[in-house]
Amino acid sequence: MSTGGIDIFGLLFIPTWVAVLGLGVFTWLNSAAILVYAERRIAGLIQNRVGPNRTGPAGLLQPVADVLKLLLKEDVTPSQGFKTIHTIAPLIPVITAFMSVALIPFGENIYVTDINGGVLFILAIASLGVYGVTLAGWSSNSKYSLLGGLRAAAQMISYELPMGMAVASVVLVAGSLSLVEIAASQEFLWNAFINPIGAIIFIIAAFAEANRTPFDLVEAEQELVGGFHTEYSGMKFGMFFLAEYMHVFIGSVLITTFFFGSYHLPFAGYWLPELSPMVKGILDVSVFMGKVMFWCFVFIWVRWTIPRFKFNQVMKLGWGRLLPLSILNFVLIALGMYAYTHWL
């Protein structure tokens, strides 16, 4: 926890971490709303149509209308379903998504907390989210949901591993498990330049983790009629909806943090002059959010342009291609680091 803070006329002292937490939670909460709007507009752009433009100026109130509609809908639980789990399941992905906010550095010294095992924490909570999907699929007592839940479980396991290996190669380069230090270590050279294969593997795995096309077979609308959330309605469905977009957002945040220089501009260490903390803070947060927005756009772009994998193809890609490749990449990076530290 950093000790700095903002002093308001000597009356109130707000520690930085409280301010960042407030800002972070605000961003996380609104990311879903903004992404829903962005997705609809970008989908419209890709499909040669307009997209929502009636609710509020330029359709900006569309997410509000969506949520209002979900709030007013009847909440249905299947009569043969497991009511308790059916209610708890939608909360799990949302809560785990929120937990990640604590560890993300938004800028130099702008973070909530820095624990020395931050990477492990992030990976752990990211995989917890799948419990929500699997339990939802199981407790709905619907065959389509069950298939969706099973697909989710299998997919998560197969993509956790390459993702973990890709992150491990980043940890090797940074020499630390702390997200803050990984971010700081990219001041001169982004990890994507040192470790391009790892970056690609991580991006693919992040798509799979977020259940987005081409890995959205968990909720495959065409064959499974929505998959795990077939039997959900009202705000319970809204929770899944929220979680999906928050996972897109977190996926983008992690891609940025691990591989694309976090809050650093490219090669910033070489040319960026010393700035006052205020200016640097604003610059850092803007750069960070800019990159996150770019990756969110990529998520949306991919969703509306390419088809979906089949279950066995996802398994083949995960276990047969990505896992060996990520292990090989890890070994290569390890050798490279050894050479760099011992021979150069």
Binding site: A43, Q47, N48, T213, A220, Q222, W304
Partner: peptide, 13 residues
């Protein structure tokens, strides 16, 4: 057919 395979935009085109 392409939409059933998962690519939604094609349907609109």
């Amino acid at each position: 057919m392409v939409m059933d395979a998962g690519a939604i935009s094609f349907f609109i085109w």
